Computed example of a mutant assay.
Amino acid sequence: MELRHLRYFLAVAEHGTVTAAAARLHVAQPAISRQLQRLEHDLGVSLFVRQGPRLTLTDAGRHMLDIAADIVARAETAKMAAQQIAQGHLARVSVVAATTTIEYVLAPFTATLGAADPFISVVEVPSEAVHDAVFGGHDLGLAATAPPASRLAWIRLTSVPLRAYVAPEHAWAARRAVSLEELSQVPLLLPTRADPTRLVFDEAVNRATLQYLRYEEVESPPLRQALAAADRGVAVVTDLERFGARPLLIVDDAGDPVLLTIHACWNPAHYAAGSLAAFAEKLSVFSDTVVRADAERIGSPRSDPTPEL
């Protein structure tokens, strides 16, 4: 059994006659008739019954129809993929990222793509697992953790500021910013230690030679902010304001915002490394304009939804 036998079978099933199938495929009628007989011989079943000039599928033929269509489609997909590999092109990009990065960075970017751009398929993984997932075979990773030195190609996408959220009646509620030193002295609501936001916050606290002693670890960003709105502590997130909680920019001792940097990474040995680099550059432009602008508007009267990245 060969693929062309299955293609002839599908054409005759679709058009109803060998004559019409031959015209569609630009193949001589006797050749199609011989190959159909060969296919029936190989399968050991009759696929058609003749009713005048028309050929009608038998029960066996109807069962074979979907199977044949699937085999031919898979063969075409494999052929296309091989051509793209040879040319270094990508029709599909498999992206791994944490849930909120997908929701607030990748999904809005995907909405701007056109028909000529790759199809985006997504796998959700924790931020700390992104790099291993890229080494495991996925095309592109989006993460807020630094890539392993010299092992992955990577590009910075953007940086977004960390925010401290407080209850509406909190003494800081009317302020625009809060220092790391002030935060070290109050009860905090922090992400878990594997979360990139926590890593960035802890690094900033360590650089300032400070320490915080009173804190609760709350994995969910919305729940951290809800607890802050209920005045159960000060939440550290990069999310948009909700539940009435008030956002304050977290600044270091020089008055500079504490930033979370997001990057894209890929394996430089990937067959389409050049195409991935171009795709990541396009994502970088989007992230450093749209995503960063949204993040910087948190706390303003016309604030737009922004992620916990």
Rank of each mutant, 00 (worst) to 15 (best):
V130W: 03
A68W: 06
M80C: 12
G136M: 08
L140S: 00
A13S: 02
D304V: 14
M80W: 13
A226I: 10
R224I: 04
V93H: 07
V258W: 01
I120C: 05
E216N: 13
A133N: 05
R302S: 15
T77K: 15
H270F: 10
Q84K: 13
A173Y: 06
A75I: 14
V290K: 06
Q51V: 15
D42T: 11
E241D: 14
D231E: 11
R232Q: 09
F201N: 03
H263P: 12
A295N: 01
I85K: 14
L10Y: 01
E2C: 09
P53W: 13
F9D: 00
T112I: 06
V95W: 06
A22M: 04
I298M: 09
V96S: 02
A23V: 11
P147T: 04
P148Q: 04
E219S: 10
T58W: 03
I298E: 04
A293W: 11
R232Y: 08
I250P: 00
R176W: 15
T158F: 09
A60H: 08
G136Y: 10
V200K: 01
D253W: 14
A277K: 05
F48Q: 06
V105D: 10
S46D: 15
G16A: 02
H170P: 02
P307V: 14
G88H: 12
D239Y: 08
A11K: 01
V18Y: 01
S284N: 07
L190Y: 07
D253P: 11
V160N: 00
T158Q: 05
Q225M: 09
F135R: 03
I102G: 09
I67V: 13
G137H: 04
D252A: 08
D231T: 07
L36H: 01
L152D: 04
L3E: 11
L183M: 02
K282C: 13
V258H: 00
V125P: 00
Q35C: 12
L260G: 02
N267D: 11
R7H: 10
P222T: 04
A91M: 14
T238D: 04
G255F: 05
V105N: 04
A273I: 10
L43Q: 05
A194C: 15
L152M: 06
A272S: 08
P191T: 02
P168A: 06
E203Q: 07
D252F: 07
E217S: 11
S284V: 11
R24M: 14
